[in-house]
Write a protein that binds this DNA or RNA. Structure first.
Length: 116
DNA sequence: CGTATGACGAGCC
DNA sequence: AGGCTCGCCATAC
């Protein structure tokens, strides 16, 4: 049963992360650290970024709903996806202020509110 | 094997 | 607000 959470294989960690991200509802966002925690991988926010970068375009995983703890879209210098992410979020009603920041109190995902 | 590098985050100044 | 350090750990070289 309780496997060493910090000792899971990279493969299993990716599956857990993808599962958690897939559970983020439309119009809500979660932070890298939050996703890591929910995936049973505390303090491994960087791994979440890696897991998302490994996704295929047609994976269906809502990678755009993951932002950093400052409420901002994390920089991927040179990649068009950084801008695309903002577009996808605005399309589903997530508001960004002039500086591109999202209010986590308003749009942050609370798993307890949306069980299942 | 040692270093550097990240879609990160918390703490500190 | 902005910068720095350290923790984290898979990958690349």
């Amino acid at each position: 049963m309780s496997p060493r959470q910090a000792g899971v294989s990279a493969d299993e960690a990716f599956r857990r992360i993808h599962r958690v991200v897939s559970a983020i509802p439309e119009g809500r966002v979660a932070t890298y650290g939050q996703v890591a925690l929910l995936a049973g991988l505390p303090r491994r926010a960087r791994l979440v970024g890696r897991a998302l970068a490994a996704l295929d375009d047609d994976s269906g995983v809502p990678w755009h709903r993951v932002i950093n703890a400052q409420g901002r879209i994390s920089s991927r210098d040179g990649s068009p996806y950084e801008h695309f992410q903002r577009l996808l979020l605005e399309e589903e009603g997530v508001e960004l202020d002039e500086s591109g920041r999202i209010d986590l109190d308003r749009f942050g995902w609370d798993p307890d509110e949306t069980p299942g």
